[in-house]
């Protein structure tokens, strides 16, 4: 595995720099995977390019996937959930939400269980970066919790894990 060797080489080369600046990062990166106290779920969409799928895999939390093709039966949510979705906007922001995500949210039963949205995208799209999150939050009256790029970085993963944990605890305390 030559690429792993390169990766170690790069990390070693920048080790000094890392030690100087990573104190803030270290605290979030050590957080372990699934939180047992998590009360609710994740639903995500990912096209065959797989960026969001890889993000959810690394998140290590139970999640259900909206089928990528219209020919497949649509997912039915059974518990409150946070939606993770990529963005497909053109330069004017049109078409930001994938048709399969629209289909899923068009089901009122699914929509009722939606508690928040996390969106991905690419900052190269300027003001429309991860715009699907903005659109869904406005349409469904739920918060856009977080935005990340492509398959996310390690700190994106750490922040979303911690954030979701806290978010569900808050939700629980509101509903009690």
């Amino acid at each position: 595995m030559l690429w792993l060797k390169w990766k170690r080489w790069v990390t070693d080369r920048f080790l000094l720099l890392l030690q100087e600046t990573s104190t803030g990062l270290a605290s979030v990166q050590t957080k372990s995977a699934a939180s047992p106290e998590l009360v609710s779920g994740l639903v995500y969409f990912s096209s065959p390019s797989g960026n969001t799928h890889r993000f959810v895999e690394r998140l290590g939390l139970p999640a259900e996937r909206i089928p990528p093709r219209a020919s497949e039966p649509m997912l039915k949510a059974t518990q409150p959930f946070v939606l993770i979705t990529p963005t497909y906007a053109d330069g004017e922001g049109r078409g930001a939400v994938h048709k399969q995500v629209i289909r899923f949210l068009n089901d009122a039963a699914n929509r009722t269980l939606l508690r928040g949205v996390i969106a991905s995208g690419n900052r190269n799209f300027g003001a429309f970066f991860a715009y699907a999150g903005t659109i869904i939050a406005a349409k469904c009256n739920c918060p856009c919790l977080y935005k990340f790029e492509l398959a996310g970085t390690d700190s994106d993963i750490a922040r979303v894990r911690q954030g979701l944990d806290l978010f569900w605890k808050q939700q629980l305390s509101i509903s009690q």
Binding site: R123, G126, A130, A137, P143, Y146, L166
Partner: peptide
């Protein structure tokens, strides 16, 4: 690179007015 893209999205960071329901 992305003007205005960072408004109101990091709910998790809990900073300022980031929590805006649409």
């Amino acid at each position: 690179l992305s003007p205005n893209a960072d408004e109101n999205h990091d709910f998790f960071s809990g900073s300022g007015s980031s929590y805006v329901i649409g």
